[in-house]
């Protein structure tokens, strides 16, 4: 039986629980787990104050309940599986290095910020700064995969240096802003100012978009490599029809203010 943490008491103010991570919960029995510290606002509390702990870690942790005030779940994790049932608070999987997080619900801001490896699957929507850097830093995620089935808000993939972000729904403003490299695929629509300041990297949308004046139209073609990506995400459960697989994409180069080595691809037909 995998280890299950079920929320029994909703926190009044945010709980910071980076301790909910396979690295930290491994090899502990139920009572030791319950006694692990979390911060409830400024008060040091225990996991047991909020969660009913059942089972033994067998490579997988399940967390259940309305976790929208629980922050930092899975932050920094290096291995194992973390399955979250319910909406979850900020900084989910921040700085994650490996392993897998699956969220059946929505996640708040800064999910997967500065991630270096592993995979996060979000079945609902994501907040702002999905897979971004933390303030002041010029580098966001440097690896790993962030798979969102719903929508994402502003600054998805901000300053991303490597890795893959897939957004099944729409993204809002500044998708891939200051991107250094990597790939962002938005199956829905994007907001404005996509790719502002990007140096390298790819941003793909299946819809038209208003682009900044510093992006230059190159051609309409069907990039072979896209077939690899689309095939890959198809296997992850996204609907990709053949028209998209073999279709034509507008290629826009930018941002000319920076290196001008990035590309925005917009599906045409």
């Amino acid at each position: 039986m995998s280890l299950t943490l079920s929320l029994h008491t909703s926190p009044e103010v945010p709980v910071e629980a980076d301790v909910i991570s396979p690295d930290r919960l491994n090899n502990l029995n139920e009572s030791a787990l319950s006694a692990l510290p979390v911060f409830h606002g400024n008060v040091q509390a225990k996991i047991g104050d909020f969660f009913k702990v059942q089972g033994q870690y067998n490579g997988e942790i399940r967390v259940e309940g309305d976790l929208s005030k629980v922050k930092h779940i899975g932050a920094g994790m290096t291995s194992g599986r973390l399955i979250v049932n319910g909406d979850v608070g900020a900084h989910l999987g921040a700085g994650m290095q490996g392993g897998k997080i699956i969220v059946d619900g929505n996640v708040a801001d800064w999910a997967a910020s500065e991630m270096t490896g592993g995979r996060i699957i979000i079945k609902g929507n994501a907040g702002h700064m999905l897979g971004s850097s933390i303030r002041g830093s010029a580098t966001g995620i440097t690896g790993g995969e962030i798979i969102v089935h719903g929508n994402a808000r502003n600054e998805a993939g901000q300053a991303m240096r490597n890795g893959l972000i897939v957004i099944g729904g729409n993204s809002e403003d500044l998708t891939g802003v200051n991107m250094l490299s990597g790939t962002i695929i938005v199956l829905g629509k994007m907001g404005i100012r996509t790719g502002a300041g990007m140096k390298r990297g790819t941003i793909l949308s299946m819809h038209d978009a208003d682009l900044l004046s510093t992006f230059t139209y190159a051609c309409t073609y069907h990039p072979t490599y896209l077939r690899l990506y689309l095939t890959y995400i198809k296997k992850l459960g996204f609907q990709i029809d053949d028209a998209k697989l073999s279709g034509n994409y507008e290629r826009w180069a930018g941002d000319s203010i920076e290196l001008n080595r990035g590309e925005i691809l917009l599906y045409r037909n």
Binding site: T183, Y221, Y225, L228, Y232, E263
Partner: peptide, 22 residues
């Protein structure tokens, strides 16, 4: 040329006259 890494495999996209050689 542009590099792409997917699933831990690095590919190179080399611009050529009919599009890209991957």
């Amino acid at each position: 040329q542009i590099s792409k890494v997917l699933d831990n495999r690095r590919m190179w996209r080399i611009p050529v006259m009919d599009g890209e050689f991957l």
